[in-house]
Amino acid sequence: MNNIMEIFNRITLKNVRRRTLLIYLFMLNVILSIAILVFSNAIISSSKATGTIDYNTVRLFYTFAILVLFILSYVLTPLFLSRSINSMYRDNIIDNLHSARVKNSDIVLAVYLRGLTYLVIIITSALPILSMSFLYGGVGAFSIAKILIAILCYTILFSAISMYISSTIYDLNISMVVSYVVGFILLVVTLVFLNYMISEFYYIFFYVFFALFCTIILLLNTTNASMINM
């Protein structure tokens, strides 16, 4: 556990120095704030003019909020994880960690948790602003919870996929492209099933089980990948 935290801190320190997290957080919240202001303005203007609420715009607003969260996860996950293991391998960090007798599983877990932590911080930072859209959309708390679970599971699984790809493809750019392609397929599948997940409880249960099972398998495979297990 100690080694996991040391590696976690070192990679985090690197990103803090590069201000990566800060830049992403700032850009995301600026974009979301502008979008929500535009949507809110359209709804209020329409209500004032007609005396009724324009539910088409409200529905669009609600769909936009869900899509933003998914797309956010889709865009950011490869940035944090698709070049994680192979860049450590290229930079000779893995050799030095092995010579210090650090276990493969410690390296994999530290890298994975760091990526996941960043993604969760970024997604949750958008929640206060996005919650406004849920309010306008008129959906219940239970449905919001199910959507958030789906987003979280997508992020957990896609992070594991990205990291696994980074441990098998040596070229940093190719691993990122492959990661985006696989992530896109997973995103489409998740969005297609999202309606079922909201309406039926066992669909979300199935998706959670599927995501966690695949994540564990992928993490175990990453531990045994050639760039880690030399």
Binding site: L13, K14, R17, R18, R90, N92, I93, D95, L97, S99
Partner: peptide, 30 residues
């Protein structure tokens, strides 16, 4: 797993975002 062997690799660890002190304390802690 706790044999006392140290290696100076030919390839150097490339990390432009970590200071000499941070680098040494990182391995010291490990």
């Amino acid at each position: 797993h706790k044999l006392k062997v140290g290696i100076l690799n030919d390839r150097i660890e490339i990390d432009n975002d970590i200071s000499v002190y941070d680098y040494l304390s990182f391995y010291g802690n490990i």
